[in-house]
Nucleic acid binder design. Structure first.
Length: 561
RNA sequence: UGACCCAUGGUGUAAUGGCAACACAGCAGAUUUUGGUUCUGUUAUUCUUGGUUCGAGUCCAGGUGGGUCAACCA
């Protein structure tokens, strides 16, 4: 269930197919909705998981039900408590509270007993074949598999062998427990799937208590059943697992949870493959799992995305069974939509050009009132010092302006945002002809949107007082890859060849002094530059502003023409 | 060359046998002390062939295209 702010899915939208299924269930008299989010604690959650989290928790919330958080920890060699903690943190950050926290490993004893039930029913057997033999006899998608020579052992022998497996009598790989289904089944997963394998490894929760571990297919449906999950929602690649999911539940005659599948999220200019993301981290293409360019939830958080915007995104991408690739610009839209509403405005100059206001009294400073957020009156205002010398952005001045350039140019006049009108009188250059500063005059009567004679200017530019400005590092993040689908590589290239060299640009900016008191959890819109949040350099602990997303820049399009 | 899943503007998602719509992206204009925001307008869609039907995006059959499955991963 959502805590804090309401999930931003309250705008009217048509039901997705899962909601329709649930409403049909309710119409049939099934009043209870209980979902679960079942990550394996073997890595960090990404935006694709966020879709699943919002779906599972959202479904339950909508129909007055509950959602469990369950860690699918059936493979001790891949899992770690570090991941458990990060997953819990990420789910909470997204704004959801789980009804119960469970672990598949909590059910190991029950699962073991149920395996015995299946053995007694003649539906499971211990197989002595090697991994290679099992693979070789499984057949292919077009040819049937062959039955194991151990397939018809007696229940007594199977029981004894299985108990010995648990007792640690055998080495890893020496024996497995298999379900006895059909080696010729067209669905490969039904060809006597492995239920238990021997792994002599320490588990992050059960320690060394077990040396046999259940496989996903054997553990998942039963775990759902134990928790009396009504709607077990997972991604499409588990579609072929559903017959097996149902097979175990039916043979065991336990609570009939049902599995439903939806298409996983794909996003342009990035990728969700844990394996490939790991390569980016290990080979230091990024700073870590929480590098703000990564699609992980912890990265989005660090970059300055809000949980509200991620939830809004999850709601807008929809839920269906067809493969999809979402435009990265939709994510950017969602975060801009939220940030525009809540982020306080500040002025920042990335590429400074000094402006001397020649008719302004030397040594004088005045405080200019600036609105914090024109979208939100309650955000109030702040005072920003103004003096004879200010920095403006170099982009806001052009010596030979094209038509439709509204900002400063020789002889032209613009407004310094919330301040005075200034007119460019003289361009000062160095010996090489590079512009080093501008000499302007100001209209003393022009504060507050007025002017001495009622004239209007089209251009409004931002500025900081040279004497009062503070400096800080800005990290400007852009898309991680240069192509929409980094998996779609040319011959001889891999995804790393398509990394965007400009995905991280560091600049030292001049900021208005109020930013010295910037808050870590606050979001700011640096006017003309983008939305930022405060971060700290991992090693030096120096303050840094991370850019969440850029402002829409229609001037860039005009300039291209 | 098996089983299963899928096919609607550039990208997503609706339309549940009865006028193909909504959002993002694009384009144009208006407003604006952010070339931001907001507002208005606008471009563009049912893979194909047949069948059922008064009527098909929707139902049926074939074709084509895409995806998933042959870990002792999940």
């Amino acid at each position: 269930m959502a805590t804090g702010n309401e999930v931003s899915g309250n705008v009217e939208r048509p039901l997705n197919f899962l909601e329709e299924i649930i409403e049909a269930d309710i119409a049939r008299g099934e009043s209870r909705v209980h979902t679960r989010f079942p990550p394996e604690p073997n890595g960090y959650l990404h935006i694709g998981h966020a879709k699943s989290i919002c779906l599972n928790f959202g479904l339950a919330k909508r129909y007055g039900g509950l959602t469990n958080l369950r860690f699918d920890d059936t493979n001790p060699v891949k899992e770690d408590v570090e991941y458990v903690d990060s997953i819990k943190q990420d789910v909470r950050w997204l704004g959801f509270e789980w009804a119960g926290e469970y672990y598949a490993s909590d059910y190991f004893e029950q699962l073991y007993e149920w395996a015995i039930v299946l053995i007694n029913k003649g539906l499971a057997y211990v197989d002595d074949q090697t991994q290679e033999q099992i693979r070789a006899t499984r057949g292919t998608v077009t040819v049937p598999g062959a039955e194991s020579p151990w397939r018809n052992r007696s229940a007594e022998e199977n029981l004894r062998l299985f108990a010995e497996m648990r007792a640690g009598k055998y080495a890893d790989g020496e024996k497995v427990l298999r379900a006895k289904i059909d080696m010729a089944h067209p669905n490969m997963l039904m060809r006597d799937p492995i239920m238990y394998r021997i792994i002599h490894a320490e588990h992050h929760r059960t320690g060394n208590k077990w040396c046999i571990y259940p496989m996903y297919d054997y553990a998942h449906g039963e775990s759902d059943s134990i928790e009396r999950i009504t709607h077990s929602v997972c991604t499409l690649e588990f579609d072929v697992h559903r017959p097996l999911y149902d097979w175990f539940i039916e043979r065991l005659d336990i609570f009939p949870s049902h599995q439903y599948e939806f298409a996983r999220l794909n996003l342009t200019y990035t990728m969700m493959s844990k394996r490939k993301l790991l390569q980016l981290v290990q080979n230091k293409y990024v700073m870590g799992w929480d590098d703000p360019r990564m699609p992980t939830i912890c990265a989005l958080r660090r970059r300055g995305y809000t949980p509200e915007s991620v939830r809004a995104f999850a709601d807008r991408v929809g839920v269906a069974r067809r493969d999809n690739v979402i435009d990265y610009s939709l994510l950017e839209f969602c975060v801009r939509e939220d940030l525009n509403r809540i982020a306080e405005r500040r002025m920042a100059v990335i590429n400074p050009l000094k402006v001397v206001i020649t008719n302004y009294p030397e040594g004088h400073t005045e405080q200019i009132e600036c609105i914090n957020n024109p979208e939100d009156e309650s955000a109030g205002s702040r005072l920003v010092p103004f003096s004879r010398e200010v920095y403006i952005d170099r982009d806001d001045f052009m010596e030979d302006p094209p038509k439709k350039f509204f900002r400063l140019s020789p002889g032209g006049e613009v407004r310094l945002r919330y301040g005075y009108l200034i007119k460019c009188e003289q361009v000062i250059k160095d010996a090489d002809g590079a512009i080093i500063e501008l000499h302007c005059t100001y209209d003393p009567m022009s504060l507050g949107g007025q002017s001495s004679d009622g004239r209007k200017v089209k251009g409004v530019i931002h500025w900081v007082s040279a004497q009062h400005a503070i400096t800080a590092e800005l990290r400007l993040f852009d898309r991680l890859f240069t192509i929409e689908n980094p998996d779609d590589t040319e011959e001889g290239k891999t995804f790393v060849d398509y990394l965007n060299p400009e995905s991280l640009v560091k600049v030292t900016a001049y900021l208005e002094p109020s930013l010295a008191n910037a808050k870590t959890d606050a979001k700011y819109q640096f006017e003309r530059v983008g939305y930022f949040c405060l971060d700290y350099d991992a090693t030096t602990q120096n303050p840094i502003f991370n850019r969440t997303v850029t402002l829409k820049d229609s001037w860039a399009k005009i300039a291209e023409k």
